[in-house]
Nucleic acid binder design. Structure first.
Length: 275
DNA sequence: CGGCAGGTGCGGA
DNA sequence: TCCGCACCTGCC
């Protein structure tokens, strides 16, 4: 983790006992960290993993929903979240665009190797991110050499916004949904799809569901309607029944299908995601 | 070897 | 607001 200018090695451990959930985080650092720093770090981690989220209300109505009932039982406690910062999510989001996952991973890896810092702690070697200024200073040609293609421009422009403090994650967390939308979509390289990922994952907006991309549309059609292809408008209208929890409900079902794919086979899904 | 992938910006209707 | 198009690149 790169946070407040410090590079930290983190180890997360599950220390839950039965119905008493608990996590332990070990923090490794080159320098001595003050109790105040660690306290703030704890608050940051609680926010990022959304540990204070109260799912009770969601579960109450999910248990009355035929589709959701078995899934919320299976994934009790699950919530969408992102372990990193907004800036880091943007880097990932841009790498995902118009790309198969395998290549997104390899492009992100080359970015780490060029701009990141490899941390070595607790028997782990893991890459930490770069400061936005490191990438803002890079030329487009330098980034294109890393085979990120036309995304180079987005990476640089987004980094510049952070360097120039045009965007402040902490302030944005407290802003209204409309303000968050406006700010994020205003970033070069951020469109409706990346915005749709960030609203729940980074800003914990579980009522945000305005855009469904073609590949998601195909999968949603199968799992929610048992049909080949359902129009996006119809889907969005249908999801309204889940009210302010609609994005969370969809996320649970989404997670369920990928989990099934890992443990048993889901032939129609394989068919949709191959190529 | 053409077409496409976990999209987006841009210009024009 | 909506639509069509170009766009890096690797791989099916």
């Amino acid at each position: 983790m790169l946070w407040e200018g410090k590079r930290l090695g983190l180890i997360y451990k599950n220390a839950s006992q039965m119905k008493n959930p608990k996590a332990i985080v070990e923090v490794y650092s080159d320098e001595k960290l003050t109790p105040e720093f660690l306290d703030n770090l704890k608050k940051e981690i609680v926010w990022r993993f959304d540990l204070d989220l109260d799912l009770k209300e969601f579960y109450e109505f999910a248990r009355k929903d035929k589709l959701l009932k078995p899934i919320v039982k299976r994934f009790y406690g699950l919530r969408p979240m992102h372990y990193g910062s907004l800036y880091e999510y943007l880097m990932i989001g841009i790498m995902l665009q118009n790309m198969v996952v395998k290549r997104s991973v390899s492009m992100l890896q080359s970015l780490f190797e060029k701009y990141g810092v490899l941390l070595d702690y607790a028997g782990e070697k893991l890459w930490s991110y770069w400061e936005p200024k490191a990438m803002a200073a890079a030329g487009e040609a330098e980034l294109r050499a890393l085979k990120v293609g036309y995304r180079a421009k987005s990476l640089i422009k987004v980094s510049q916004q952070f360097v120039e403090r045009k965007i402040d994650e902490n302030a944005l967390r407290k802003a209204s949904k409309e303000e968050q939308e406006k700010t994020l979509i205003g970033l070069y390289g951020v469109g409706p799809q990346t915005l749709g990922y960030m609203m729940p994952d980074v800003f914990h907006r579980f009522d945000y569901m305005r855009h469904i991309s073609p590949w998601e549309q195909k999968i949603y059609s199968r799992i929610f309607f048992n049909k080949e292809l359902v129009p996006v408008k119809t889907m969005l209208k249908q999801f309204e029944k889940w009210g302010k929890w609609k994005a969370l409900a969809v996320h649970y079902v989404w997670e369920d299908i990928w989990w099934k794919r890992r443990n048993e086979s889901v032939p129609w899904l394989e068919e949709l995601i191959k190529l």
